[in-house]
Design a protein around this nucleic acid. Structure first.
Length: 490
RNA sequence: GGCGGCGUAGCCAAGUGGCUAAGGCGACGGUCUGCAAAACCGUUAUUCCCCGGUUCGAAUCCGGGCGCCGCCUCCA
């Protein structure tokens, strides 16, 4: 069985077959560079990153484009407010975007085009649309004529007549039909402008994506992705422009990710209820955010709360603890060759079966939630081996443990988690929490030393008091034959 | 008003006609431990918002309610 993708256009899961065998042409709408990215942007980026990773893992050569909108009204307004020019603003926010995305481990796209660097291609596309009678010029603006494209509304399931009933031409607009949208906007004095056959102006929002995607991928893309809120008007308009210009199918599989909500409401700039990626990463390892974003199916809404992130942290810690234990235990030299019990053989099998089960889940419309279920099953299996290795060591355990770790890490790579060295991850995470709580490691180590001296004297009361005091600060102690270790929890 | 989505355990969340309704967090009991922690084992939904219907069989399909959310203006 191959990969199935839910196509927003048909509203069905479809068998995925790219236009060219083994090659996937993919385009995802990137950000408008005017402000820091919030978790909603992170979701879109991480979800499609997982899609790209899985397609590659399944052997496809993926040619992936993700654009930057670096000129539009929001950028102009924000730049004006800050007293800087639009180029400075967009450049700064693109740098911020990379800072966030690199931290999250989101792979770079093959091409990351900017609208302002593709003005000639945009102008050429608009000229084609005018020549074909799908667009018209009015006083330096150019509009796309919605009624010239019969299947307008097909993607977002909108009825033109019903929409027309509520629509109005706003003062200052020179549209023939209220639903027509701008391909080119004449610039007002002082605004950034490019020369065009219709006078100085700038591209409309939607046309850039059509021009850039077709420039790099040709008239027909396999996959076009973006947030659910882009279906209308952005993707509807992209589709109309592109297909009107080429007469060919623009996109074969439309994919849209659901929103991040907060207390049930959509997280958005306009509502002001957003949390930036930067804010999250100050307090959490990047993989925690990734795991959180992939813990629910990509098309469903995902509700953010600090508690939810805390749960995710606990879950990821569990994985890293298992790996860390396994790494240490499997490195020990053991002479005894105890045979593995049926239960342990079952655990070995669970680890062995992980890659296949994981891939099956991912093949089914990138069901990351189900795929994670298999990861956690494998983690439990690994812990079983760990437990045996620590209590009743056997030389026969080392290999299954090493291979189990490898399977787990390789499999999780598609989701971009479990990619850090386990010991390092745990140590860094603990120190991050410690730092946030204003504590110092050396103080904790001193307390541990003091407690161990009490323990040597079997003064359990004193020892337990020290441990309880630390626990109040979120520091948990763990005694083992190798000594006492600490971990911090939020 | 038009279009669309969702409602599964204390919380989060897979599953969309037929094996024991995945998994995570939490809680409780057990093993281990000086006691803990971590880990493992077990318990935590005889039932999937409610009411009808189709079917040999429904959480899953259909009809009707109730509740929540989104898009229809910029938004990932």
């Amino acid at each position: 069985m191959g990969i199935k993708i839910y196509n927003s256009f048909s509203r069905q899961k479809e068998e995925f077959t790219p236009l060219e065998r083994g090659r996937v042409k993919m385009y995802v709408c990137g950000i408008t560079a005017y402000d820091r990215c919030h978790i909603g942007h992170a979701r879109s980026a991480v979800v499609f990153d997982a899609v790209v990773r899985h397609l590659k893992h399944r052997g496809y050569h993926v040619y992936f484009i993700r654009n930057f909108t670096d000129i539009d009204d929001k950028i102009i307004n924000r730049a004006k407010k800050e007293g800087i020019d639009t180029v400075t603003l967009a450049t700064r926010e693109i740098a911020n975007f990379y800072e966030d995305m690199d931290a999250l481990g989101v792979l770079r796209a093959d091409v990351e085009p900017k609208a302002t660097e593709h003005i000639p291609a945009i102008i050429a596309l608009i000229e084609t649309l005018i020549a074909k009678g799908n667009a018209y010029e009015a006083d330096g603006d150019v509009y796309f004529s919605v009624r010239s494209f019969p299947s307008y509304g097909a993607l977002s399931r909108r009825n033109l007549d019903e929409m027309r009933a509520g629509a109005r031409v706003r003062p200052g607009e020179k549209k023939r039909d209220p639903l027509d949208f701008a391909l080119w906007k004449a610039s007002k004095p002082g605004e950034p402008a490019w020369e065009s056959p219709w006078g100085p102006g700038r591209p409309g929002w939607h046309i850039e994506c059509s021009a850039m995607s077709m420039k790099y991928l040709g008239p027909t893309l396999d996959i076009h992705g973006g947030g659910l809120d882009l279906i209308f008007p952005h993707h509807e308009n992209e589709r109309a422009q592109s297909e009107a210009a080429t007469g060919k199918t623009f996109v074969r599989y439309w994919m849209h990710n659901g929103f991040v909500t907060i207390k049930g409401d959509k997280m958005s700039k306009s509502l002001g209820n957003f949390i930036t990626i930067q804010e999250i990463l100050e307090e959490h390892p990047p993989e925690v955010l990734r795991l959180f974003l992939l813990s629910k199916h990509y098309r469903s809404p995902l509700d953010y709360s600090p508690e939810a992130l805390k749960e995710t942290t606990a879950a990821l810690d569990r994985c890293y603890n298992a790996l860390n234990e396994a790494v240490h235990l499997s490195a020990r030299t053991v002479k005894k060759h105890r045979p593995l019990s049926p239960e342990l053989q079952e655990a070995v099998k669970t680890l062995k079966d992980l890659p296949e089960k994981f891939d099956q889940a991912m093949d089914d419309d990138f069901n990351t939630a189900q795929a994670l279920g298999h990861i956690f099953d494998a983690v439990r299996a690994l812990n079983r081996l760990n437990q045996q290795a620590s209590k009743r060591p056997s030389a026969l355990l080392s290999r299954p443990m090493e291979e189990g770790c490898k399977a787990l890490i390789n499999t999780a790579k598609v989701l971009g988690i479990l990619q850090e060295e386990p010991g390092e991850y745990l140590r860094r995470r603990n120190l991050q929490i410690l730092d946030a709580a204003g504590l110092k490691e050396e103080d904790i180590l001193k307390e541990i030393e003091r407690r161990n001296q009490a323990r040597m004297k079997k003064d359990w009361e004193a020892a337990d008091r020290i441990r309880a005091n630390l626990l109040e600060k979120g520091i948990r102690l763990k005694d083992s034959p190798e000594g006492t270790t600490w971990s911090a929890s939020i």
